[in-house]
């Protein structure tokens, strides 16, 4: 399943834009835009999404290249964290206060 909004009917295809605002951060979805190809998508993304910041990294991806999880099968697809407290450090009370644990 692709992201919403991509359509083969358009003259310029849709691209999703991800921007990393600075070192140490991760890329965050900023929005989308239209461009005829990857080179222009990148340049347009720079103009549209980073006008006020420097030193960013930009990823552009054709919208139809993105595979998304199906929200309808949320229940089955995403494992429920409930009942799995043993995945959290807090569960282990005997270790409380022991140095370096």
């Amino acid at each position: 399943m692709t992201t919403s909004g991509a359509s083969p009917r358009e003259t310029w295809p849709l691209w999703e834009v991800f921007v990393r605002a600075g070192r140490g951060l991760s890329h965050v979805h900023a929005g989308s835009l239209h461009a005829p190809d990857a080179d222009f998508a990148l340049r347009n993304a720079r103009d549209v999404y980073t006008r006020r910041s420097e030193g960013t990294s930009i990823w552009v991806v054709p919208a139809d290249a993105i595979t998304t999880s199906d929200p309808d099968s949320k229940g089955a697809f995403f494992e429920s964290p409930a009942g799995k407290n043993y995945r959290h450090a807090r569960y282990y009370t005997a270790s409380e206060g022991v140095p370096h644990l």
Partner: peptide, 11 residues
């Protein structure tokens, strides 16, 4: 010719 180009030319 396209909105993205309005932004680019203004830049």
């Amino acid at each position: 010719p396209e909105l993205e180009e309005d932004v680019a030319l203004a830049n």
